[in-house]
C-alpha cells in the first residue's frame, strides 16, 4: 500500500462538528493508502487532538483571519518537518486562504483538491439566485443586505416568515422585521456583512454529499435525511435515501460548474415534489462517514484525485444506512494540552 502523509483540519468534534475526524476515520479505512495523519488545530481543545487512533501528530495553526501569508508560513514550517503529500481543509472560513495558496502549496509538494475561486464564489449564499439562474436549478428567492435600513422594505419583496442567514454559518427563521433586525445585528457582528435574506421554503430538508472531479463528472454522491437535529441545526442522526431526483440534481450542478472537490448540497423537497437548493457547502460535510459506511469512501477518492490518479465513479451505495452520533468523555493527561499550548505541536 502506498504511504501518504495527509494534513487535515477540522478536528473540532463538538456539538457543532467539523469534518476532520470523520475524514481521518475514512482515510484510515482506505484499501489504497497507509496514512500518516497530521492534524492542524486552531484551538488546543479540539477533541480530535486527544482521540485514540485519529492523529499521528498535531500542530496548531493560526486562524485564517490572521492572513494567508501567516497561515502559509506555518504550513511551510510543518511541511519541512512532516513532508505532507495532501492537505484537506475542512472549514468554510479557511477555504479561501487554501484555494488562493494552492499553487504555492503545490510548489512545496503539497497537493490539494479544492474548487476554483470562481466555483467557490458563485455558489456563495449571497450569489445563490444568480447560481440558480445560470445552472437551471430552483433556488429560494434571496437578497443580500448590508444595512439595517434595508430591513423595513423587505416586505415589498418577501412575505414572512423568511430566513436570515450569516455569511458563513447560522440561519434563523424570522416572523417580523424586529426579529430580522435582532438577527441582522448578531450575524453581522459574528460573521461580517452581508447578511442574506432568503424566502422560507416549506418542506423536508435533505442533503447530498458529493465529489466532483473538476471535469464535470460526479465521482461520488450519497443523499441523506437528517433524523435528529440539534438545536444548532446539526444532524445527530441521519439515513441514506434512494431519491433519484436528488442525484440528478447533484449531477446537474457538478456537470454545469465542473465542480472540483468535495461538496454538500442542501436541498428542500416540497410536498409537491419540487427541489430547492438552499445552500452549497464547498467542502466535505461532518456526516461524510455515513457515505463511507454506505459504500462510497469519498475522502479516499478525493485523495486519489489529488495525487493525480484516475478514479472511477461510484455507482452504488446502501440505502437505509444510518448514523447516530454520540458524545464521549476522553480522560487525558494535562501533558498533551500543555505541550500544544506552549510549543504548538504534539
Amino acid at each position: 500500500m502506498k504511504k501518504l502523509t495527509i494534513a487535515v483540519t477540522g478536528l473540532n468534534n463538538t456539538d457543532n462538528p467539523g469534518p476532520g475526524v470523520p475524514v481521518i476515520r475514512s482515510l484510515r479505512e482506505s484499501d489504497y493508502f497507509d496514512v500518516r495523519i497530521i492534524g492542524l488545530a486552531y484551538e488546543n481543545l479540539e477533541p480530535g487532538i486527544y482521540m485514540d487512533n485519529i492523529v499521528d501528530k498535531v500542530y496548531s495553526v493560526p486562524y485564517p483571519s490572521t492572513g494567508t501569508e501567516t497561515l502559509l508560513k506555518r504550513i511551510k514550517y510543518i511541511n519541512s518537518k512532516e513532508n505532507i503529500d495532501v492537505l484537506i481543509p475542512n472549514f468554510d472560513a479557511e477555504l479561501f486562504s487554501f484555494m488562493k495558496s494552492a499553487n504555492k502549496l503545490e510548489a512545496i509538494g503539497i497537493k490539494t483538491f479544492l474548487p476554483t475561486l470562481e466555483q467557490f464564489e458563485e455558489r456563495h449564499k449571497s450569489n445563490l439566485s444568480d447560481f440558480g439562474e445560470k445552472y437551471g436549478v430552483k433556488v429560494p428567492k434571496s437578497k443580500t443586505i448590508f444595512n439595517q435600513s434595508e430591513i423595513y422594505s423587505l416586505s415589498n419583496d418577501f412575505s414572512y416568515p423568511l430566513l436570515v442567514k450569516g455569511k458563513f454559518y447560522d440561519a434563523f427563521v424570522c416572523y417580523n422585521s424586529e426579529q430580522v433586525l435582532n438577527h441582522f445585528n448578531k450575524l453581522s457582528s459574528k460573521w461580517g456583512l452581508p447578511v442574506i435574506i432568503q424566502e422560507f421554503v416549506q418542506g423536508t430538508e435533505v442533503n447530498v454529499v458529493a465529489l466532483g472531479d473538476g471535469e464535470g463528472n460526479t465521482i461520488a454522491a450519497v443523499p441523506m435525511r437528517k433524523q435528529y437535529i440539534t438545536d444548532k441545526g446539526k444532524a445527530w442522526a441521519g439515513i441514506t435515501l434512494s431519491d433519484k431526483n436528488l442525484l440528478e440534481l447533484t449531477n446537474k450542478i457538478i456537470a454545469g460548474t465542473k465542480w472540483k472537490g468535495g461538496m454538500e448540497v442542501e436541498i428542500i423537497k416540497t410536498t409537491d415534489n419540487n427541489y430547492y437548493i438552499i445552500e452549497i457547502n464547498p467542502r466535505i460535510p461532518a456526516w461524510v462517514y455515513l457515505a463511507v459506511g454506505a459504500g462510497q469512501n469519498i475522502p479516499e477518492a478525493l485523495v486519489r484525485l489529488a495525487i493525480g490518479e484516475d478514479v472511477e465513479a461510484f455507482t452504488n451505495y446502501e440505502v437505509g444506512k444510518m448514523f447516530v452520533r454520540y458524545s464521549y468523555d476522553i480522560i487525558t493527561d494535562i501533558n498533551k494540552f500543555q505541550l500544544l499550548a506552549t510549543t504548538g505541536e504534539i
Binding site: 435533505v206 433524523q227 439515513i239 435515501l241 434512494s242 431519491d243 440505502v319 437505509g320
Partner: peptide
Amino acid sequence: NDLAISETGFVFDPITGE
C-alpha cells in the same frame, strides 16, 4: 416495490427517509 416492511411491522420509505 421499494418500500420495505420488517416482520415486526416497521416500514421504511427509502425516498423520503421516513
